[in-house]
């Protein structure tokens, strides 16, 4: 009851200003950061090979472009709201600052502050001599004995007050006791009167307004706050670490737990599991599990879903994160077949091509499936084999009559990246061998090449090109050098609703029991520079003469190993599988021995 | 709700989940076999007459193999395997049943391979691997079958696994080289 209220509007502007700044400063910083880094990301995409991305736009259907445009509009609307809030916020801040500046009551309170430097009219970094000389000059001017006779009594008392203040200021800067007081309490005379109050104008707390205020507080603390907190909490609780719904994760776990080894793992099985995902039910509560399954199959078989086409695109966009969640769970259950098929299913959905022995060719645009499967005499299943024929013959094999279309298809086919293993080893940073109980990681040197390039053995690449930097930083963090490689460019995926660049998934399997030993490692940085090279297998005749290893860029993949090396000496075998999530064909699958020695 | 038919001595659980249904089927199978068992003092010891029958059929097959009558040999061995599956009671020693089956299956695999039935051989080999037989000869035959079926990537995975368990096996090494050559051709 004895509290003072903010009659003179002295305190509440500062309160509002503080609250606004707490919100606006981080928000503005975040927005500026996004603007800058967004520009950087675009630059990265431009740096890498972009022919696949451009072609992908060209071949995308109108529904997909519409779908993307709608999503972009949603995103930019939210961004516009955020920007609006930032602008409005800073405008209010500017107004408040100006209000504070012009408010007399606040200014009066400010003048009560004791500032010896302004009183003595010197700068804050003056020396003792400067202070003394300033004091002497002013005291001469304002000393009561030195004042002129023709001053009015009021002028006299003002001068006398000024003299007292000047003396105090001098003492505050020189005399020990006064200076201590000044530093502790801000005033040489010791603690001044302080007042405590509430930063609200009285009318808000008095009479009728007070009931409104109380109701307002009750609503805020008892209703609005709990509502938002509980909504946020249930949203966080409903998602797993990998970003899928807990119900979906528990469904996948249940399927894997009850998985019978006699069951053959097919695309149909994975799609069936996916169709039970909770995310789909939440997105389309009016559709059932069987519809989801049918729509996903439509995507893989490039069938138009009629009225459900937009729904299908929504499901397909969501299936990306669901498949990664399934992959994570499958590796935790150590099941290699499911892990492999999950990645293959992602490929099938991205390329809208079923998993079959001919997927590598069917993923290309303009291919006539019928003439491919029934046509040629030789059974061609791989891109590499396809490029052993000349362009005209390829056109016949793929059933493409139009020459422009054929050229586009060939451009895409030769731009699909294939991984070629150059070197592979288990490495312990700082050691020359893998010692017992050490922490090795798997270091791979790969060549990203086109199916069109002539094959050359890994021993044609000299060891010097495969060496890593041996400096202190690389020993401390062997994975830092990976970040120097550029990000993957856009994938050719005209049937996928979003723009994507994908990644490669690295799985490590113990050969002894054939089971996966750790969660997958995602690789999203590799240089595609080699794909531009013209090293056509049909034209290069003499490998020895034409091959120049220094023209080729070697990529590095480092896979962390989740367990320490075994305690005994010996040879331990692991199978390393590096699968692309985007294209059929560019995968690696090999055995790597870990030689544990003293 | 559990329902029991006292005439057929069988249980039934309508609208049950997959697991419960399987359990009920197993209980019913066990009940039927127990009811059909004539000897009140049955033991886990494999029955003499079943063993004799299975052995006879199998040896028949071997004889036909020696006479180069491959198709007939396969038929006899198939019969022997089917007999083992049907005649053996579920309470007879598992180790004996498994060994008997695996032995006959190994011969069936070879007969299939010789007659070009690669898919059949592959499934039998998968069965042998799944039931714990991870010897090198299984890997050798599986690699061979996969190569014949043009599944060169899978063949490579098999032969590499075989080599990691038996690094000095000459036959596996030869198969590995051959498969690498075929893979190179397959990829142009």
């Amino acid at each position: 009851q004895s509290y003072d209220y903010d009659e003179g509007s002295e305190t509440w502007p500062f309160f509002v200003l503080a609250v606004l700044c707490v919100v606006l400063v981080p928000l503005t910083a975040m927005q500026l950061w996004e603007l800058v880094s967004g520009g950087q990301k675009d630059q990265d995409l431009k740096d890498q090979l972009n022919v696949l991305g451009k072609m992908s736009e060209q071949y995308a259907s109108s529904e997909i472009l519409e779908f993307r445009a709608k999503n972009l509009a949603k995103k930019s609307k939210w961004l516009a709201k955020r920007n609006l809030f930032i602008i409005a916020g800073w405008t209010v801040v500017a107004y408040l600052v100006q209000y504070i500046g012009s408010n007399d009551a606040i200014q009066d309170a400010a003048t009560l502050l004791f500032d010896p430097y302004t009183l003595l009219d010197i700068s804050t970094s003056s020396t003792d001599r400067e202070i003394r000389s300033a004091y002497r000059k002013l005291s001469v001017k304002f000393h009561p004995d030195k004042l002129t006779k023709d001053l009015s009594p009021e002028q006299r008392s003002v001068a006398e007050e000024q003299f007292v203040l000047i003396t105090k200021a001098y003492k505050a800067l020189t005399d020990e006791v006064t200076r201590e007081n000044f530093l502790k309490y801000g005033h040489p005379d010791g603690p001044q009167a302080t007042s405590h109050g509430i930063a609200l104008p009285k009318f808000l707390v008095d009479s009728s307004a007070s009931t409104l205020m109380v109701l307002g507080y009750i609503a805020l603390l008892g209703v609005i706050l709990p509502y938002f907190v509980s909504r946020w909490w249930s949203k966080t609780q409903s998602m797993t670490k990998k970003g899928i719904h807990v119900k979906s994760a528990s469904y996948f776990s249940d399927r894997l737990f009850n998985f019978k080894p006699s069951q053959v793992v097919t695309l149909d099985l994975i799609v069936n599991w996916l169709s039970h995902a909770e995310e789909f039910k939440l997105m389309f509560p009016e559709l059932g599990q069987e519809t989801f399954e049918t729509l996903l199959h439509d995507q893989v078989n490039r069938k138009h879903s009629g009225t459900l086409e937009t729904a299908k695109l929504g499901l397909v966009a969501k299936s990306h994160v669901l498949l990664f969640g399934l992959l994570d769970i499958a590796t935790t259950f150590r099941n290699l077949e499911i892990s492999n098929m999950a990645i293959d299913t992602l490929k099938a959905i991205v390329q809208a091509t079923p998993v079959s022995p001919y997927s590598q060719l069917l993923q290309l645009p303009n291919v006539n499936a019928k003439s491919l499967l029934e046509g040629s005499v030789d059974d061609i299943r791989t891109l590499g084999k396809l490029f052993t024929y000349d362009d005209a013959k390829i056109g016949k094999i793929l059933g493409i009559d139009d020459n422009t279309k054929l050229q586009e298809t060939l451009t895409i086919a030769s731009a699909i990246p294939h991984l070629k293993l150059i070197r592979a080893e288990f490495k312990v940073p700082g050691e020359s061998v893998v010692t017992p109980q050490s922490t090795p990681h798997i270091s791979l040197k790969v060549l990203v090449r086109s199916a069109k390039h002539k094959f050359f053995g890994p021993n044609l690449i000299p060891d010097e090109m495969c060496q890593d930097e041996q400096d202190f930083d690389s020993l401390r963090d062997p994975f830092a050098s990976i970040l120097e490689q550029p990000r993957l460019p856009q994938t050719f995926a005209p049937h996928f609703p979003g723009k994507r660049s994908g990644c490669w998934c690295a799985l490590v399997v113990l050969q002894k029991d054939g089971k996966v030993i750790q969660t997958p490692m995602l690789i999203d940085r590799l240089s595609f520079a080699n794909l531009n090279k013209d090293f056509d297998k049909r034209t290069v005749k003499d490998l020895e003469k034409d091959f120049k290893p220094e023209d080729w860029v070697i990529g590095t993949i480092k896979i962390p190993f989740s367990q320490p090396a075994p305690a005994e000496k010996g040879d331990f075998f692991f199978r390393v599988i590096v699968k692309s999530t985007e294209y059929f064909g560019p995968d690696l699958d090999f055995t790597l021995a870990m030689a544990v020695r003293e | 709700t559990l329902q029991y038919d006292s005439n057929s001595k069988l249980l039934d659980v309508p609208d049950a989940s997959e697991d419960v249904e399987m359990n009920v089927k197993q209980i019913n199978k066990l009940t039927q076999d127990l009811v059909a068992e004539s000897n009140p003092n049955f033991t886990p010891q494999p029955r003499e007459d079943s063993t004799a029958m299975i052995k006879k059929l199998f040896e028949n097959g071997l004889k036909q193999l020696q006479q180069q009558k491959m198709a007939d040999a396969l038929k006899s061995v198939n019969l022997a395997v089917e007999m083992a599956q049907r005649k053996r009671a579920p309470w007879e020693a598992f180790a004996v049943q498994l060994q008997e089956l695996q032995f006959m299956m190994k011969n069936r695999v070879d007969l299939c391979l010789v007659q070009g039935k690669f898919m059949d051989a592959l499934q039998d080999l998968d069965f042998l691997q799944n039931t714990g037989l991870t010897t090198s000869d299984v890997f050798i035959r599986k690699t061979d079958a996969l190569m014949k079926l043009k599944q060169y990537d899978q063949a490579r995975a098999e032969v590499e696994r075989g080599l990691s368990l038996d690094p000095t096996n000459a036959k596996l090494r030869v198969l590995h080289m051959e498969n690498t050559r075929r893979l190179a051709e397959y990829n142009g």
């Binding site: 080894p261 006699s262 053959v264 | 309470w91 898919m119 499934q123 043009k150």
Partner: peptide, 22 residues
């Protein structure tokens, strides 16, 4: 024994699935 039997009986179905796939 029953598990073994089930695995054995799956052979025929697996053959069909693989034949279709390949």
């Amino acid at each position: 024994n029953q598990a073994l039997k089930r695995r054995f009986q799956a052979i025929l179905l697996r053959k069909e699935v693989f034949s279709e796939q390949w």
